[in-house]
């Protein structure tokens, strides 16, 4: 099979994708390659994916990564380049991207992006993350097993992490909800806050103005100091 190759290199295991006709054929080839080397790999191993064709990279890479992860492997890196023809286990890397999600990854179901204002009596219910592009009017409700981001005014009821996920976050441009809930912690927000993030800290729901420094680099988990 000319289109894929699996090699052990200095970077670790690299799945090299040279060229392919259609994705279905590529996936069949990848499956074959892995089963050929059965026993060499275990579920959860981190591998790099190297792709030669830069154009194909932007169009297909999400599907390729998804396919490899469904097979049980974590994709830590995407490389654009090719195997060195002379020294088989050396790589000529033109571009490298570290896949951040493979470490800080939370995925339940695909994120539902809802582009409308949710009115009184209407609800968005989803077993994964929800992004609402619009307002959540008083009397409306968002119920999510994951995180909830409201790009608008949140005046209704927001329930995040409903299956018990205390790491779930709620963000709103205007946080003025009737009620918020994360896992089984419930809270009210006495005064409207702009650009606010709600999260659970020490068993209580905390609602604060979103701060990049607080929530960004330097914390292992939201709410917990390193």
């Amino acid at each position: 099979m000319g289109s894929v190759d699996l090699r052990m290199t200095k970077r670790g295991v690299v799945l090299f994708v040279e060229k392919y006709g259609d994705l279905a054929q590529l996936f069949a080839d990848i499956t074959n390659k892995f089963s050929q080397l059965n026993g060499f790999f275990t579920q959860g191993d981190k591998i790099s994916v190297m792709i030669k064709d830069r154009e194909k990279y932007s169009k297909d890479i999400t599907e390729i990564v998804s396919f490899v992860e469904k097979m049980g492997f974590k994709v830590g890196e995407i490389l654009v380049g090719e195997m060195n023809k002379k020294t088989p286990n050396k790589l000529s890397v033109k571009q490298k991207m570290k896949v951040v999600e493979s470490e800080n990854f939370q995925q339940l179901n695909p994120t539902k992006v809802v582009k409308k204002t949710v009115r009184s009596g209407q609800a968005v219910i989803h077993d994964g993350d929800v992004i609402l592009v619009g307002n959540l009017n008083s009397g409306g409700e968002v119920i999510s097993a994951g995180n909830v981001m409201i790009l608008g005014e949140a005046r209704g009821v927001i329930r995040a992490g409903v299956k018990g996920d205390e790491d779930a976050l709620i963000f709103a441009i205007t946080m003025s909800p009737e009620l918020i809930q994360i896992a089984n912690h419930v809270s009210h927000v006495p005064e409207s806050i702009e650009n606010a993030m709600a999260y659970v800290r020490n068993g209580k729901v905390v609602v604060e103005k979103y701060d990049n420094i607080k929530f960004g680099v330097g914390r292992d988990q939201i709410g917990k100091e390193r």
Partner: peptide
């Protein structure tokens, strides 16, 4: 106004 919002929501539905 809140009742109107409810009604508009129902009409949308």
């Amino acid at each position: 106004i809140t009742d109107a919002d409810r009604v508009i929501g129902l009409l949308e539905n």
